[in-house]
């Protein structure tokens, strides 16, 4: 099991995947928007999306869990 965390504070602009999706390492999971910049957060390891902790429009802080991949 792998936790995907936000590497910066910002708004969740887009959630690219759905729960249950199979992803590979490097695939974008969500796109954060902060200070007029969009930053994709990618999976560090492949697996299936067990749980998505955020919705589009949510605000996340650095270190917050975005998704659980297993």
């Amino acid at each position: 099991m792998n936790q995907l965390v936000a590497n910066m504070a910002g708004n969740v602009w887009k959630v690219v995947v759905s729960e249950g999706d199979q992803v590979n390492s490097g695939d974008d999971i969500v796109i954060l928007e902060s200070m007029k910049m969009e930053i994709p957060i990618a999976a560090e390891a492949g697996g299936s999306i067990k749980e998505l902790k955020v919705n589009e429009g949510d605000f996340v802080n650095e270190g917050d869990v975005i998704a659980i991949i297993e």
Partner: peptide, 13 residues
Amino acid sequence: YAEDPKTFFPSPG
């Protein structure tokens, strides 16, 4: 700028 000097990622706080 409030940002990482190498990656240029925003650094609010």
